[in-house]
Amino acid sequence: MKTSKVKKLMEILSTHPEERERRYAAMELSDFPREDVVEHLVNRLVEEKSRAVQEAIVSTLITIGTEAVVRRCAELLRSEDAYLRNSAIEVLQLLQHTSLGVVKELLQDPDPDVRLFAVNVLGELKVKEAVELLCRVVEEDEDVNVVAAAVEYLGEMGLRGDDRETVRKAAERFSDPFLEYAVEVALRKMEV
């Protein structure tokens, strides 16, 4: 019974000509936190042309909130579609504890854009481990944009003496006016 309902909803989401029907189908699928549903939702998110339906799919993915959602959304960070990338960041940020493990892996990705997205997710995670990971990014990452983003988030989090030292040293690793500015701003915020 459940399986036939899921099948029907997935079919409506894929093929129904009415945007409203596809949107409702996407929302109803939130009652079925199964891997095949997650797979279908993410595939439709990529193919769907209606922004309203895409937004419904994103809400459903957040409601389902499983490890499968996090893994599939992490793949969207490599998409050429900026909306998909930003939606993936939103999902990963909102699914804080579930996404932490995946985000840690993304910090080792060879693509600096993916590492930057991982930092953007970490910056919104309200967990102690996020601070430690951001400090490691500041100390070790080779891309100035990734380091600058981590510095900015650390500044916003308001930190301890050791973290201030980590941020201060970031400017010494690169000769870049933007990073110098980011470090100055972050240290000012940390003093408040």
């Binding site: 050429e80 900026a82 600096p112 854009d113 930057l116 100035v144 944009n145 600058a148 870049d176 006016p177 933007f178 990073l179």
Partner: peptide, 25 residues
């Protein structure tokens, strides 16, 4: 920060006059 050709192309298609990659001096 997006430095791929596809990003530049989409930026110009959207109507940008110039596409620069961060960080900018």
């Amino acid at each position: 920060t997006e430095a791929k050709d596809s990003d530049r192309l989409e930026g110009y298609r959207a109507g940008a006059n110039l596409f620069l990659v961060k960080p900018v001096k």
